[in-house]
C-alpha cells in the first residue's frame, strides 16, 4: 500500500480510530505511526475530532475497590518485581473486590481521621561503600508501606535489577522488599510478614539480580550494599 498518499493515510487513520481495521491491519497501522510522523499526526487528528463524542457521555463511577486493585497491579508490574497480574476471572471475583473496597474505605476513613498525610519515618540510606547514597527508604508509621526515592542516577545493565532485602534480626534468610527504582520514587505496600520483619530487623541489603528480581526468592547476585535500619525515635 502506498502510504505516501495523504488521503489514503487519512482514511486508514480514520478507520483505525473508529476501530474498523482488522487485527493485522490494525497492528500494521500502529507500527506505521511509530515510524512515520504523518501517520501519527493523521491518527491524532481523528482522535481529537471524535473525542467530543466520548467526553459528552454521562460519567459512570467505578466500583469503590477498583482503584486499590489497580494500585496492587501496578505495584506488581512496575518496579515491584515479577508477580504476574491476576487473570481477569480472578479480578472479577466479586467477594474479593467487595472486601478490597471495604478495606480501602476503612483505610481512607482511618487516614482522614488520624492524619492527612502518612507520617514517613526513615528506614535507611542505601549507599555503596565509599560512595554517595543512591536511595532513601522510608516507611509509614505503621510500617504497612515503604517509600523509596532515588537520590542519584542509578546505572545498571538492562538485564539486571537492584533488589532490596530485609535481613531478619536473629538470622534467617533475607526476605525481599521488591526491586529498587532506577529513577524517581515509588511507594509499596508491605505484606504482614514483610512488615513485622522490617519492624524487628536491624539491617537491609541490596543485591544485583536478573531483570525482574531474584528467580529463587533469595539473593542470587552480589550483595552491593548493607545498611543499618534507623531506629524510630
Amino acid at each position: 500500500m502506498n502510504y505516501e498518499r495523504p488521503e489514503l493515510l487519512d482514511r486508514l487513520a480514520a478507520e483505525y480510530v473508529l476501530g474498523l481495521l482488522r487485527y493485522g491491519a490494525r497492528a500494521r497501522f500502529e507500527r506505521l505511526c511509530g515510524e512515520r510522523p504523518p501517520a501519527l499526526a493523521a491518527r491524532q487528528r481523528w482522535e481529537d475530532r471524535l473525542l467530543p463524542l466520548s467526553l459528552a457521555l454521562a460519567p459512570v463511577t467505578p466500583d469503590a475497590g477498583r482503584w486499590s486493585q489497580i494500585e496492587r497491579a501496578i505495584d506488581a508490574t512496575s518496579a515491584g518485581g515479577a508477580a504476574p497480574r491476576p487473570p481477569a476471572a480472578a479480578r472479577r471475583w466479586w467477594p474479593l473486590a467487595l472486601a478490597a473496597g471495604l478495606l480501602a474505605i476503612a483505610v481512607l476513613v482511618g487516614r482522614l481521621t488520624f492524619w492527612s498525610e502518612p507520617a514517613w519515618q526513615p528506614v535507611a540510606l542505601l549507599a555503596p561503600a565509599n560512595a554517595a547514597p543512591l536511595w532513601r527508604v522510608e516507611r509509614s508509621a505503621d510500617a504497612a508501606q515503604i517509600k523509596i526515592r532515588t537520590l542519584a542516577p542509578v546505572t545498571l545493565g538492562a538485564a539486571q535489577s537492584y533488589e532490596l532485602w530485609v535481613l531478619p534480626s536473629g538470622g534467617g534468610n533475607p526476605v525481599s522488599l521488591g526491586l529498587l527504582p532506577r529513577q524517581g520514587g515509588l511507594e509499596r505496600r508491605l505484606t504482614p510478614t514483610q512488615r513485622s520483619l522490617l519492624l524487628a530487623a536491624r539491617q537491609v541489603a541490596v543485591s544485583v539480580e536478573p531483570a525482574g528480581g531474584s528467580p529463587t526468592g533469595l539473593p542470587t547476585g552480589p550483595v552491593v550494599i548493607v545498611a543499618p535500619i534507623a531506629r524510630a525515635t
Binding site: S54, L55, L57, V60, P62, G185, E187
Partner: peptide, 20 residues
C-alpha cells in the same frame, strides 16, 4: 517517573469518563 500518586490523581479525574 513512576509517581503512583499522579496515577491516582489521573484516575480520580478520568476514570468515570473512561468507564462511560
Amino acid at each position: 517517573r513512576q509517581d503512583a500518586s499522579a496515577l491516582q490523581a489521573l484516575y480520580a479525574h478520568a476514570a468515570p469518563l473512561l468507564l462511560a
